[in-house]
Simulated scan of single mutants.
Amino acid sequence: MQTKARGLIVIDTERCKGCKYCVLTCPKGCIELSSEFNSSGFFPARFSNPDSCTGCAMCAVVCPEIAIEVFVED
């Protein structure tokens, strides 16, 4: 039996500028913008649907601020 990989996304909310590239790119809809500002006045991204994340890392690839790390658990 094959189990699906699970991903964990860690977002540096102080580095994030809320560009939404990660939100638009995530094929599983695991990221959304927070409703709270960071210290720079941006609405940062947040990991909102961890059960669906496969760890594909597309969010980290498109992040212009290098604010996202992705970890995969087999």
Rank of each mutant, 00 (worst) to 15 (best):
C19K: 08
D12W: 04
G7L: 03
T13V: 10
G7D: 00
C30R: 08
P27G: 15
V70P: 05
C19L: 14
C59M: 01
M58P: 07
G55H: 14
D51S: 13
F42A: 03
C53P: 11
V23H: 05
P64C: 13
Q2H: 13
S34R: 15
V62K: 10
S48T: 12
L33K: 13
F43L: 11
I68A: 07
I68P: 01
S52K: 15
K17R: 11
S39C: 00
K20R: 01
R15Y: 06
G41T: 11
K17G: 03
D74I: 08
K28A: 01
N38Y: 07
C16N: 04
S40K: 15
E73H: 09
C56N: 14
K17H: 13
V62Q: 12
G41K: 11
R46W: 05
G41D: 08
E36K: 14
P64E: 12
T3L: 07
T3N: 10
C59D: 07
A5I: 06
G7Y: 04
E14H: 08
T3C: 00
A45R: 00
E14I: 00
V61H: 06
K17L: 01
P50C: 02
G7M: 08
D74K: 05
T54A: 07
K4M: 12
M1E: 11
L33G: 01
L24N: 01
R46D: 03
F47Q: 07
G18N: 03
I66V: 14
P44M: 10
A45T: 03
G18I: 02
G41E: 13
E73K: 00
S35G: 09
C19T: 05
G55D: 14
A67I: 02
V72Q: 07
I31Y: 01
K17Y: 05
N49I: 05
F43H: 15
E14S: 03
I31L: 03
C22S: 14
V62T: 12
A57M: 00
S52A: 15
S34A: 09
S34L: 08
S35R: 15
S40L: 15
F47T: 07
A67E: 02
D51F: 02
C16H: 03
P64N: 05
V61Q: 06
F47W: 00
C56I: 08
I66H: 15
P27E: 12
E69V: 13
S34C: 14
C16E: 04
V61G: 03
I11E: 07
R15T: 12
P50S: 09
I68D: 02
E32V: 06
F37R: 15
